[in-house]
Design a protein around this nucleic acid. Sequence first.
RNA 1: GCCGCUAUCGUCUAGGGGACUAGGACGCCGGAUUCUCAGUCCGGAAACCGGGGUUCGAAUCCCCGUAGCGGUACCA
Length: 473
Amino acid sequence: MSSPVRVRFAPSPTGALHIGGARTALYNWLVARGTGGALVLRIEDTDRERSTDANVAQILDALEWLELDWDEGPISQYERADRHRERLEELLASGAAYRDTATGADVQAFRKENPDRGYRGEPTDEAGAAIRLRVPDEGETVVPDAIRGEIRFQNRLQDDPVIARADGSVLYNFAVAVDDSDMGITDVIRGDDHLSNTPKQLIVLQALGEPAPRYAHLPLLHGPDGKKLSKRHGAASVQELREEGFLPEALRNYLALLGWGSGDDETIMSTPELVERFSIERVGRAAAIFDPQKLRWLNGRYMRELPLDRYEEQLAAHLARNDPEAAEAFAAATPEARAEACGIVQEKAQTVVEIWPLIAFLFTDPVDDDKAWRKVMKPEAAGVLARERETIASVEPFDAETLEAELRAVIESEGLGAGKGLQPIRVAITGTSVSPGIFESLVALGRERSLQRIDRALSRLADAASPVSGDQG
RNA sequence: GCCGCUAUCGUCUAGGGGACUAGGACGCCGGAUUCUCAGUCCGGAAACCGGGGUUCGAAUCCCCGUAGCGGUACCA
C-alpha cells in the first residue's frame, strides 16, 4: 500500500489571495480530499520585507470563505528558521554548500563571458559572504511532473544559487526543500512559475539525502488580455469576488473547470462530485484566461438552486458588509416577508449583489427613478392606473393569480397591451421600471402599502397634468 | 540573450492515428416565451499557429519555425 498523500498550499503573504492562488489551493484541496490525504497550509513568509500579518489574515479569510479547510497549519516558514539553519549547517559541513563573496552583478558578468556554463563560486571564509548551493557540473536534474512528464535541466547550465544570506537567514529555494521534506509532502502542486526553481530544490533535497516529492506544475492563469494575471489586469482577489456577489460553491466549480477537463461534457459539478472526479493528471498544460462572464453565468445557476434560507443568509451577509442601512431594514422585516422577497427574486439575480436592488422597494421607501417615471407615467397612464387601483383595493383573495386575472381584465377593457397597462403599477410601487413580477411584487408589498404608493403616484400625475399655479405669470 | 513551458472556435475545453463533414459550455447573433429586467427554450455563425516529415491515413506522433508565457534576485 502506498503512503497517504500529503499536499500543501504555500502562499506567500505579499498580497491578497487572488484567483490564481485560489485555484492552486482548490486543486491541492481536491487532491487531499479525493485521496483521503492531508493538506498542509504553510505561509511562506521568509521575506520579512514584504510579508505582513494583514496579508496572512486575508489569505486565511479567503480560504475559509471558499470553504477550503486544511489539516495542518498554518505553519509560518519564518518561524522555522532554526531548523533551516540546522540543515544549512549540514550542507556547509559536507561541502554541498559554501560561502561565496560574489554579488549578483558578478554572476551576471560571469554569465556574459561564459554563456555555456553556470556560475560556480570560490569557497571563502570571509565574513559577509552569502551561501551558495553547489550544483553538480555533470548530468541533469529531472523534474518528474504529473502534468508535463519529465522535464530535464542540464546541471552545467545552472548557476550555483544563493540559498542563504550572510547572516544565515535562508532563501526560498532552500526553505521550501527543507519544509517539504520535514512535512512529508508527497506531492507538490503549485504554479508553473515555480518550474524553473524545482531543479534547485531537487538538488537541495539530494544534498540533504532526502527523497523528492512528485510534482505537478499548474499552468498560470492569465487576464482577459492574455497576459499574466496581476492586479493590473483583472486579477480579482477572492475578497473582491465575494463582494461582487459570487458564491463559494460556484467559484469552486468554475475554478475547477479552469484548466481541468472532466473528460465528458459536464459543466455543473458539485464540490463532492469534483472531489470524486478530479485528477491532477487531467489538468491541461496551457495557460487559461479567467472569464468573469462564464463565472457569472455559472453563479446564476447556483443562485437559482440555492435553498431559500441560504439565499437569505447570503443576502443578509452581503448587506451587512456593504450597506448597513439596508441590512437593518431587511433585518427589521418579518421572516415571512424576507422569505417571500427572496422567493420572488431568486429566478432573476445572477449574483448576490443583484438581489437587493430588485427587492429594496419592499423594505424601504422607493426612490423614484426620473427616467422610468418620464417614460412610463405619461398623462394617459392616470386613467388605467386609477382603475387598477380600485381593483387592487377590492380584489379577493389578494394573491398573484387573482390579481393577474383581474388586472388583465382591466387592461383589456381599456384597450391596452400588458406592457402599457402594467408598467405604471410597477413604477408606482417600486419607483423604477425593473422589478420582479408585478403581481408577485404587489402581493409581497401588501395591499395597503401598494395602494398608498399608487395613490401617491396618482396625485403626482394629477399635479403634472394641471397647470402649476404661482409663478406662471 | 540564456533556460524552461505552451499552442483546437473570442474564452474554457473534448479529442490521445481512422468513430472529425472536430463535440460541449460561456459569450455573440437570430427566433420563441414573458408585465419590465433577468431567466428559460429553439436555431445559427465561430477553431485544429505555419512548414516539413512518419504513416495507407494525422487535430492527434517527430522535427523546424513562429508566437505567447514563465524564470533568469542575497523575492516568493
